[in-house]
Amino acid sequence: MTVQASDFRFLADFMRDAAAIVLEPGKEYLVDSRLAPVASQAGFSGISALVQELRRSTHSPLAQKVIDAMTTNETSFFRDAAPYQHLRKAVLPALIEARRNERALSIWCAAASSGQEPYSMLMMMREEFPQLANWNVRFLATDISQEMLQRCRAGTYSQLEVNRGLPAPLLVKYFTKRGIDWQIDERLRSAIEWREFNLAGRAWLGLPSFDLIMLRNVMIYFDLQTKRSILANMRKVLRPDGYLFLGTAETTLNIDERFQSEQAQSSCYRVRAA
């Protein structure tokens, strides 16, 4: 199955308008691999027929399915060693010290995808910072994809998924085998508030302030203007002594100079003092 040029142009415009995601020429293979299953499941003869239906309405359940499919990313538990090490060794100890009087922490995973990142962080916090059990920890995880959020809430992972990056002692401690899949404990699932959120949208006013924000491996999909707007909004919801993590291949450099690198290897940033 190959994508026709006119269909690709339509999908690129649709993804830009609906989710501020940039699909540059050359990404036809991505459209092909992501949307062929959607077309087939929805009973279309191919991507062309799916696009034809999408042209009729861009606010349908089908449109949401297309957004879901195009924004879903491969991930793993504890993806990249550096950020988790920096969280463990520096960031969480510093935040726990700074908030010792109020005994409250607020954390936001802004691109939760299929949930491995928030669950990895939560497991790490339970294992390494047991004192937080008596704190008021607010853990928000958001994603643009409703389908992903449903997966996150269910907390069910395939064997291939738990094979990726999850230490076996944590599998034993926090998961239950359900048929051929593995489900994470209800205690962890209910410790996270899952919410739909479009980073390129306008719902930022409803957000509280955060001590720690994970914005990993999502900025790469946005154009420069959207990146600038997202980082400016992040500054507004990040507490002055808070921390922002980007993906290890991402940077605020030449996008938002108000952020300064706190630790380059883990792509950890803080807001410069005014």
Partner: peptide
């Protein structure tokens, strides 16, 4: 072996990690 009981047994016997087949180089 992909049952929880086997993972628990292997770790209790002294395995440090457990990888279920099939696997990829990344895993």
């Amino acid at each position: 072996e992909t049952e929880m009981e086997q993972v628990v047994r292997a770790l209790a016997a002294g395995a440090n990690e457990y990888l279920m087949k099939p696997f990829t180089p990344e895993m």
